[in-house]
Simulated scan of single mutants.
Amino acid sequence: MALSHKTRRRLSLFLLLVWLPLYVVAAVTLAGMFERPHIALEVAIYVVLGILWALPFRRVFLGVGREPPEDER
Rank of each mutant, 00 (worst) to 15 (best):
Y23G: 02
P69H: 07
I45N: 03
E70G: 10
D71L: 04
A2L: 09
L30C: 12
L15S: 13
F57M: 00
Y46N: 00
M1V: 09
G63A: 12
V18C: 15
L55Q: 15
M33V: 12
E72L: 04
Y46R: 04
V18G: 12
V24E: 08
L49D: 00
E35Q: 15
M33H: 14
S4L: 12
G65P: 14
G50M: 08
P37G: 08
L55Y: 11
A31V: 04
M33C: 10
L11I: 11
A2D: 14
L11W: 09
G50H: 04
I51L: 14
T29E: 09
Y46V: 05
I39P: 15
S12M: 03
L15W: 06
V60T: 07
T7A: 14
M1A: 11
P21E: 02
E70P: 15
I39D: 09
I51T: 00
G63V: 08
I45H: 11
R8K: 15
L15F: 11
L41F: 01
P21W: 00
E67L: 11
P21K: 04
M1W: 11
L41H: 02
V43L: 13
S12Q: 03
G32H: 01
V24R: 08
L55V: 13
L20F: 07
G32K: 01
S4G: 14
L62T: 13
E72T: 01
V60R: 03
V24P: 12
P69E: 07
L13I: 06
A27F: 00
R36E: 12
P56M: 05
L55F: 14
H5K: 01
V47D: 06
T29L: 06
V60D: 01
R73I: 08
L16G: 15
V28T: 10
L55P: 03
E35T: 14
V18P: 15
R8P: 01
V18I: 15
E67I: 06
V60H: 01
A40T: 12
G65S: 10
V25D: 09
A26M: 07
A27L: 05
V47F: 13
M1T: 13
T29H: 06
R66C: 12
A44N: 01
F14E: 05
W19A: 15
Y23M: 00
